[in-house]
Design a protein around this nucleic acid. Structure first.
Lengths: 315, 315
DNA sequence: TATCCTTACGGAATTCGTAAGCATG
DNA sequence: CATGCTTACGAATTCCGTAAGGATA
């Protein structure tokens, strides 16, 4: 058994059981992959892949168990390499953050700026994607840190920690009738066409939820994944915008007015997520703390340890 | 990086950083071990071992982290092999149980008998040792299941599950004055020389505790690790015995009388322990259930999962 | 001086890529 | 017949044991 074989297995699974693709992805020859996998199966005494003729069509029952363990093995191997990197040079390496547009544009910049100043030698990469893509990237080990408001706390392999809370705000063009309302109601809002985020994004679920609970139907005339797009169309008079409060900047958005609607929609919690079992570089902890000061390294490690801390179990 | 290197590192640590011993233990040459470790260090970019001249004297700081991860890696590798064995043939393999004398002699036999009947192809091995040795064997992976009353629930890497409760009983030679007492007190007992277990054994701590709480001093004239030894000397009139109730058999121990003293000493809980993170063969679960019917496979897996089940953590 | 790690070197085993073979859709 | 896994074989690499070297207690 060797790590090469394990990598081949993992990649083959990731590539939908296509050996040829897996071999290409790993820059090696396809027969080599074939042979190594076969040898691993022989050593373990079970078939990992179910073959029809000469094609892989599924994972066998033991294969599923094998793949799960292989994942953990390769993860620990990564951790081992990180230990090396961490002690060899604490201030260099790479850090990949997967996040949504709103976070990248409005929440992360201060932390990123300070981080770059502190760790000029770290190659920092920000990957923008939908919440589900963020989860995938974290789970595959393609990102070290995820930042988003939706989805993160439903993935069992991730540890999602609350970073900060925020509310939605309504934005309208200057001079809009709604500006006069003292305390906006959902019915007031529903009277207008709505411009807001795509369903999978940035707290959108809380918006739908509030209208649904009130039994009010509302018309979304434009959904953007992007607060800037939404603001642009609101300014053009397309409808009333509902965006994250931090995406409104009175200095810049001079043609718009924000209306406080904290009483209408549930609070949103943006979370920082990391993969359970992954070893974080020291500077990764620092980044998280820069972004969300209450998430200290100690606190995070405590939270991560909590999953292992089950004491004697009384049935 | 390969598994060979990891094994060498683990064994070197286990052998108190003595490369030569490690090489012997692994039936290989010492220069080979030296080279592989050096190469691993080079690959990781850190020294794992601190050297003084040409001798290993300690683990470096990163070395400690490395050793921890290496342990997990090799454990998962073991799990992988077990998956193979489990599916290749569910009814054969080997099962090692580490336990104390009292358990081996009085508690385990029925389960062992039934297990042998059900799984004739499994090589069953019972290893007898002190509680601390049992813990060590489990942690090293030298035993699959531990059964004991003491120590097991203090080891963080073990999952200790309650199997059954039992009480101490006093044994005296037939015709002994204490036989007449209706309800024995600690003072009654302390008037006689005591014959009981060694301090680290079979609920001995509860005995000391009870006398200490009452402020009574007592004289132990003989400590045995072994209920049979204790009974033998009680029969010879050396003193009054305190043993586990299940070790007294009225049929066989005709020269002795047992006196119920449940009111004097705390109840003892015998536990079944397994290593956290270790994969158990199907028949291992069956053995546990034969021994302690309330410990079903489902329940055990639930208990094991509890340690990973930490949900989103609110600071 | 005994113990113990490192270096050097040569034979053995493993790995890996190319080329050719065969089964499925 | 195009795709995709397996088998065969030879070159390159890696592994591993023996022998010798150097450093510490």
């Amino acid at each position: 058994m060797n790590f090469q074989q394990l990598k081949y297995v993992r990649e083959t699974v990731r590539r939908n059981l296509n050996l040829t693709e897996a071999a290409n992805a790993l820059f090696t020859s396809q027969p080599g992959v074939s042979k190594q996998i076969r040898e691993l199966e022989q050593e373990l005494g079970v078939e990992i892949f179910e073959r029809r003729g000469r094609r892989f069509v599924a994972l066998t029952e033991p294969g599923k168990a094998v793949v799960e363990i292989v994942g953990r093995l390769l993860e620990e191997a990564d951790n081992l390499k990180r230990v090396g990197a961490e002690y060899a040079d604490r201030d260099s390496g790479s850090l990949t953050i997967a996040t949504t547009h709103t976070q990248a544009r409005y929440a992360l910049p201060p932390a990123v700026a300070e981080f770059r100043r502190r760790y000029p030698k770290v190659r920092l990469s920000i990957q923008q994607g939908k919440p589900q893509q963020i989860v995938d990237m974290l789970e595959r080990g393609d990102a070290d840190i995820g930042v988003a408001t939706e989805s993160l706390d439903h993935a069992p392999n991730l540890l999602a920690l609350p970073a900060y809370d925020w509310w939605h705000t309504v934005v309208v063009p200057a001079g809009h009738p709604l500006e006069q309302e003292l305390r906006l109601s959902l019915d007031d809002l529903a009277a207008w066409p709505i411009v807001t985020y795509s369903p999978e994004f940035t707290g959108r679920s809380h918006i739908d939820e509030a209208f649904a609970a009130r039994g009010v139907s509302f018309e979304v005339v434009l959904t953007g994944i992007d607060s800037d797009v939404i603001k642009t169309y609101v300014e053009l008079g397309l409808g009333v915008g509902i965006i994250a409060a931090m995406a409104f900047d009175p200095q810049r958005d001079t043609g718009l007015r924000a209306i406080d609607v904290r009483h209408l929609f549930r609070v949103n919690t943006t979370r920082v997520a990391i993969r359970r079992g992954a070893l974080l570089r020291g500077f990764a902890y620092d980044f998280i703390e820069l972004f969300a000061p209450r998430l200290t390294r100690k606190g995070i490690e405590r939270a991560a340890a909590a999953e292992r801390a089950a004491d004697t179990f009384e049935i």
